[in-house]
Amino acid sequence: MTRNERPTSVAARVVAGVAIAVGSALAATAIAGGALSVVFARTVLTPPKKRDEDLRILGHDATTVTLSPSIDAMTPGLYSMWFTQDAGHARIGEIVTYSPTAVTRQLLGVDRGTLDGVSRARVGGWFYLHPSDLGVEWVDVDIDTELGPAPAWLIPAAEPSTRWVIGVHGRAVRREEALRAVPVFRKAGFTSLLVSYRNDGDAPSSSDYRYSLGDTEWRDIEAAVQYAADHGATQIVLMGWSMGGATVLQVVTRSTLAHLVAGLVLESPVVDWITALHYQGLAHRLPRPVRVAAMDLVSRRWSRALTGQASPIDLNRLDLVTRAQELRIPILLLHSDDDGFIPPTASRALAAARPDIVTFEEFDTARHTRLWNYDPDRWNSAIRRWLERLAL
């Protein structure tokens, strides 16, 4: 302090300096939070190019494979195991032995590639890769969508039938996911149509190559409903896994062809994206303001340059808990309390809001979209019983 400078002026300078520092810190925090919101939003909307191989392969022989311990490695059931960046595929079965450092499971077969020299892999819910794996007749068909022909598998019922099921896979997977449902529907006399939709790697892509979380994908499923009706279907069931569940819910609440749909089967579905996105954000330790900002970004037209999407997504329109009274047809809802990706919260809420039309089968231990894998007998029985009631 100089001889003529008063203490109050020094204090004022200190306060001003502190204010500038705090303001800069707050601005930096806001910028960082904004960047995280953009990253989260783009991650949700952008189809992934590759999947993490989060398991270590410790060894294998002709009938077993030994993996590093993890939730996936230690969950009972039948699963796919992908390796070599998805160029390789094997099927694994029940746990043979386990210890704190290793899990040995049945190796049911290697369909693609070789496990020799492979050290990393990931577990997936697909078990069948093609209709031919089921030992049934099938044919490749194209569904005429607004974006162009979308390939599908048509698997006729064992006997001529006007009852059809349209299988709709979830986010970041393809129609192979729906193959698990073919046997139980076929035994019930259904023809199966397993479809692709925009941006899934099989169907034509949209101009922005972004998911709309069901907000536009439903139009491709509407085209599949029209295809089924044009080919003799008089009773159509839509079955959707995960985001496929969100998509078929949009069909029956927005399509002019909704009257052709007799019922829905929803497996690990997204019933309310707001709940799902909060859960995903929490899983990545994102604070609430970042999560809220990300949802605002995907909902606003001005943010298209940040998210890359062509049109905003109406998350409220995708909330079928709030819109539960708009539903008019029977629904079988299958979800696990240990889903790990999409919480069963909204599924429970929908079941509570519409007990008159919703049959809720809540599993435990099974992971996201892997209820069949964990307990195929219970999964098949639940669908069979529901279809029997639907036929009355």
Rank of each mutant, 00 (worst) to 15 (best):
G124C: 03
I71R: 15
H130C: 03
V136K: 01
A90N: 07
T63S: 15
G125V: 05
A90Q: 06
T66M: 10
D116R: 12
D86K: 09
P69Y: 05
I95C: 12
V110W: 07
G88Q: 08
M74D: 11
V118I: 15
R122S: 07
G125I: 01
V96C: 08
R105N: 14
G88D: 05
I92R: 02
Q85I: 11
W126P: 01
G93K: 01
Y79S: 03
W82A: 01
G124Y: 00
T63I: 13
R122E: 08
G113Q: 05
R112E: 15
G117I: 03
W138K: 08
D72Q: 09
V136N: 02
P100T: 12
G113V: 07
D61Q: 14
F83K: 00
H130K: 04
V65M: 07
T66P: 10
V123R: 04
Q85Y: 13
T63L: 14
I71W: 02
T63N: 15
P69W: 08
S70D: 09
T64R: 14
D61T: 09
P69K: 08
T64P: 02
L107R: 06
R122M: 00
T66Q: 14
V139Q: 13
Q85V: 13
V118N: 07
L115C: 14
T63W: 06
M81L: 15
G88M: 04
A102T: 12
S68E: 11
L107M: 12
S119K: 13
R120I: 07
D86M: 05
L67C: 11
L129H: 00
D72H: 07
D111F: 11
T114S: 14
A62Q: 15
I92D: 03
V123H: 02
M74K: 09
R105W: 11
A121N: 04
S70L: 09
R105A: 09
P69T: 04
H130S: 01
T114R: 03
M81T: 03
T66G: 14
P100G: 10
A87I: 00
D133R: 00
V139C: 01
T101P: 01
T64N: 10
T97K: 15
G125Q: 01
R105K: 13
V103E: 11
R122P: 01
I92E: 05
Y128I: 00
T64D: 07
D86A: 14
T104Y: 12
V110M: 08
S70E: 06
F127Y: 04
T84V: 08
G88V: 12
A87S: 14
Q85C: 02
G109P: 12
D133H: 14
A73K: 13
F83T: 01
T114D: 09
D133Q: 10
S80C: 00
D133C: 06
G113I: 04
I92V: 15
T104N: 08
L134E: 06
I92C: 04
I71G: 06
T104V: 14
I71D: 14
T114G: 11
L107D: 12
R120P: 02
D86L: 03
F83W: 00
R112H: 15
R105T: 09
H130L: 04
P131T: 03
D72W: 06
L67I: 02
W138H: 08
G117P: 03
